[in-house]
Amino acid sequence: MVKIGYRILKTAFGAGISIAIAQLLQLTFYASAGTVTMLCIQRTRKKSYEIAWQRFLACLIGLSVAAAMFTVFGYHPWTIILIILISIPLMIRFKAKESVIASSVFIFHLYVLKHITWSLILNELALMVIGVSVALLLNLFMPSADQELRRFQQKIEENFRIIFHEMSQYLRVGDHDWNEMEMVETGRLLKEAKERSVHNVENRFDEEELWFYRYFQMRDKQFDVLDHLLPHITSFHPYSDHGEKLADFLDEIAEGIHSGNTAEVYLDKLDKMNEEYRKMPLPQTEEEFDMRAVLFLIMNEIRRYLTIKKSLAK
């Protein structure tokens, strides 16, 4: 069964309302007002404003060129060709190229009637104003995506916890049966969440929606760090005292994953651990040297992860 979405409902009601208003005002070609409304209903308020301005500007350009060409050369099919060849570059020049088709409707109105008067020009502009206005009014009503975004947030945070616990588990027992499914799923969730948060910002323009946008951008950067961190973890020799202590720290970070700012606490702990490791005796073998190098790489990546989180609170 096909689901009728919010945008479809607005498009249907908007077209009907625009036609009813134009018909009530006894405008010629009143059905065209409905066409304009349908073309102006967009997924976001921001996009609707941009399209509405483009439609109106393209209409002015199309009517102006058409009026001049029809007056000079008459009402012939080849005049239409000339009008289109002149008006389309102008629309592109003034960044209204997406409205070429909409403007052509008004050009064809003049061609069908084969006369140009000020009352007819005002009629066409009225159709455009009605169609655009109804679309903009309806697009003021946009459903909030807050609940959906919070579900994305909860699932992404849960996956982050699992990833940290799995890395901690590797440091304790070595290779185990984790299939890294959470890594793949988190990448997909972040992509969807970022797209949805952008639409929400363009719809509502308030501080909370901006917070969600910044939050998912932050998690995406952190996920990139985790992607770089994982190979270092799997190359570290398990069963060591250093690995056990690092594993405990990763478990702490996992349990502290939420939207609040806990990064400062973990950065302080990381500084203390880093200082302890630097005071250790120098490695005696090549293997110890390699493990020490990997250890510092892991800690640097963790620092990068925590610093990214800290930036969200600024």
Rank of each mutant, 00 (worst) to 15 (best):
L122D: 14
N123E: 12
N123H: 10
E124T: 00
L127H: 01
M128R: 08
V129W: 04
V129N: 06
I130Q: 00
S133R: 06
A135K: 03
L136S: 05
L137A: 15
L138V: 11
N139L: 14
P143K: 11
S144Q: 02
S144K: 00
D146L: 03
Q147K: 12
Q147M: 06
Q147H: 09
E148V: 04
E148R: 02
L149K: 01
R150N: 14
R151L: 14
F152E: 02
F152Y: 15
Q153H: 07
Q154I: 07
Q154G: 11
E157Y: 05
F160D: 03
F160C: 05
I162N: 07
I162F: 11
F164Q: 03
E166G: 13
M167D: 12
S168A: 15
S168G: 15
L171V: 14
R172H: 02
R172G: 01
V173I: 13
D175A: 12
H176T: 10
D177Y: 06
M181A: 13
M181N: 10
M181K: 11
M183R: 13
V184L: 08
E185D: 09
T186E: 09
G187E: 10
R188I: 15
L190N: 07
E192M: 08
E192Q: 10
E195S: 14
R196Y: 07
R196T: 14
S197T: 02
V198W: 09
H199F: 07
H199E: 15
E202V: 01
E202Q: 04
N203C: 05
N203V: 00
N203A: 00
R204M: 09
R204L: 10
R204C: 01
D206T: 10
E208Q: 13
L210G: 00
W211R: 11
W211Q: 13
W211N: 04
Y213F: 14
R214N: 12
Y215G: 00
Y215W: 09
F216V: 00
F216E: 00
F216G: 01
Q217C: 06
Q217F: 09
K221N: 11
F223R: 10
F223D: 00
F223G: 05
V225F: 04
L226W: 07
L226K: 05
D227E: 08
D227Y: 06
H228G: 05
L229I: 05
L229N: 02
L229T: 04
L230F: 14
P231I: 11
H232Q: 08
H232V: 10
I233Y: 13
T234N: 10
S235T: 07
F236S: 12
P238R: 11
S240R: 14
D241P: 09
G243I: 04
G243C: 04
E244C: 02
L246A: 04
A247S: 15
L250E: 09
D251P: 12
D251M: 12
I253G: 02
E255I: 10
E255L: 11
